[in-house]
Design a protein around this nucleic acid. Structure first.
Lengths: 339, 339
DNA sequence: CCTCTGTCGGAAAACGTATTCCATCACCTA
DNA sequence: TAGGTGATGGAATACGTTTTCCGACAGAGG
């Protein structure tokens, strides 16, 4: 490791000079192209590179090759366990394929998301993965942006947002919520309230609708619905608002984070979740099993979804193939058998 | 949005041609350099760019400029709430500065981390942020790698790993654990066990040492110590192993995730955490307040740490400045007053 | 001995952008 | 009106790679 005083990284040319060969040969020796290089020169180059501490300039590589080794990931909120778990799956899959992951967060703003996709296109990533459902209205603009990217040879996959022109991995939100409703009715519950997220999020809408559909089978209607933020604080606020109202037996929050916020609100009000009022969520994040009472929910294979999404993107058929991963109703103590 | 059939993105030259100007003028019009461009031509270029759906090739920009608009983030495990919260702070700070974040995951392997830093250097990012303590042995190799990067004009900040040649934001792990120990002794506890992570992690070692030091003040020694994974499952396994052993009153796990795993192990064994055996953690992740009994822990401002780290990196003085953020002992029901 | 074929090295062009340098032009001052 | 000055546009070059193309050379077959 001869330290160099120049103040800037050694370039391929430096390596070539050090090894006494041309830049072309150095390039070929370092990333074994179709062309062969004599073992002798190869060794010379490799040694020179190591001696100088050479790290190829990936930007330059990218412009020369016209393609990058990165995957762009877009999530709503990386601190949300749902998304960070998906992200973990994507990172795992990407690194296995020798790709690095770049990440951007939308903060659940559709405008920001569109802006990000546009910026990211500038990176010319190998693939783009969008995680998280978005609004229904603007879908066409987003689809256009993605199509433009695909036309230029990019690959796209989305998680839990069917209807875009690309590979999609999703779960059956409606069906899962419906199965949950069935199970809860079977446990003896009859009077339900729903905590839903902003209506522009497909995930929220599908789960709320599916739940209502499940109840409808049994001739039951949802008594009360509150729309709130998709966060723990949102769940807390909504539950607090709900407390003064109608007499209900069970609150279904469209995701676990909100459900946990709701449970906290109950405790803050001096009530015992599960005993005084049952609570159910959706996602089965790792915290669901750790809260007390343990949360009844619908298990979603988040990490697998991320992994599957990146595989789908890298396969790159471009077909709007739809992969639907199974969900599982998990009944726990937050919804004890009733009556 | 005239769709183009070419199959590849429009380039700056396409835009220039469309606007009837030279490439130089187009470049100047689009990112307002030192040079001025007549308002008329500027409008022409901007309109042409929009019409073609032009997105500048950031790789090419980077090679031309010699610098990128990205920040590289290295974390141990993005699904861990501790790291995803730090990541959220970093993304927030980076996006505010108009930078995009690229992310890599080490899986807590020091070799992998070194490898990643080396690869990342190739991206020539504007800054590198390392989050998560690493091993003590190999520190010199890592420091060398970072110094090489800095010599080439890169900026670095690390989170919770003092001793590297760059800006560092950390918390007082020893002091926090010591304060926790003091508080627990004051609550009447005398017989302690410790669940610690792999010894190569500074964080784990400092917290365990600090806790022991706090007890030593009161003339108390730790009765039992188990080394385990830094994960929830690790905590679960270690707690299970501990159950057959000495009679203890409180288990301190060096992070919340492990503590929560330990609580689950207690419940699995038919014991009630807090009543039969007290549990304390470290980090105050959001789940800490949602478990029952709520977890006694030491609050760490993770998001602020990320934000502060990116600020430190971007300031770029290169000084090994040390920012120490305060921690707070939070006593909750998992460690009720004793006796 | 001559040509043909295949291997290997290097010179040069290409990738898409930023920037330096030069030319032009209008305008102002003396 | 000559000369200086500031604004503005474009040609050319630089950035660090990869890749195409060409030439040199060695060995094989006639």
């Amino acid at each position: 490791m001869t330290e160099q005083g120049t103040g800037s990284s050694p370039t391929l040319l430096d390596v070539a000079r050090e090894a006494g060969v041309s830049a072309a040969t150095a390039s070929r020796a370092l990333n074994g192209s179709t062309r062969t290089v004599s073992a002798e020169k190869q060794a010379l180059v490799l040694e020179a590179a190591k001696r100088l501490g050479y790290a190829p300039n990936l930007s330059a590589q990218a412009t020369a090759r016209g393609s990058t080794k990165t995957v762009a990931l877009i999530v709503h909120d990386i601190a949300d366990p749902y998304f960070s778990s998906i992200a973990a799956g994507i990172v795992e899959g990407a690194e296995a394929a020798g790709l690095t992951v770049t990440m951007a967060v939308t903060g659940r703003s559709p405008e920001r998301e569109l802006e990000i996709v546009s910026i990211l296109r500038g990176h010319r990533p190998h693939a783009i993965v969008l995680a998280g459902s978005r609004i229904g209205d603007d879908q066409e603009t987003l689809a256009g942006e993605l199509r433009a990217y695909q036309a230029a040879g990019g690959r796209v996959a989305v998680v839990s947002q069917p209807g875009l022109p690309c590979g999609t991995v999703t779960i059956d939100n409606r069906g899962g919520a419906q199965a949950l409703a069935d199970a809860l009715v079977a446990r003896g519950y009859r009077r339900f309230a729903v905590l839903r997220g902003p209506d522009v999020l497909h995930t929220s809408r599908d789960r709320a609708d599916g739940f209502a559909a499940g109840l409808a089978h049994a001739g039951i209607e949802v008594i009360d619905t509150v729309e709130t933020d998709f966060t723990e604080d949102g769940g807390h606020a909504a539950m607090t608002a709900l407390l003064g109202g109608d007499d209900i037996e069970l609150v279904f929050a469209v995701n676990d984070v909100m459900a946990i916020g709701a449970m906290r609100a109950l405790r803050d009000a001096g009530l015992v979740p599960g005993r005084d009022l049952a609570v159910a969520g959706f996602d089965d994040i790792s915290a669901a099993i750790d809260v007390t009472p343990a949360l009844t929910t619908v298990a979603v294979p988040t990490r697998a979804m991320g992994l599957r999404a990146i595989e789908l993107a890298l396969a790159g058929t471009g077909e709007p193939e739809l992969v639907r991963l199974p969900t599982n109703v998990v009944l726990r103590e937050s919804t004890p058998r009733r009556g």
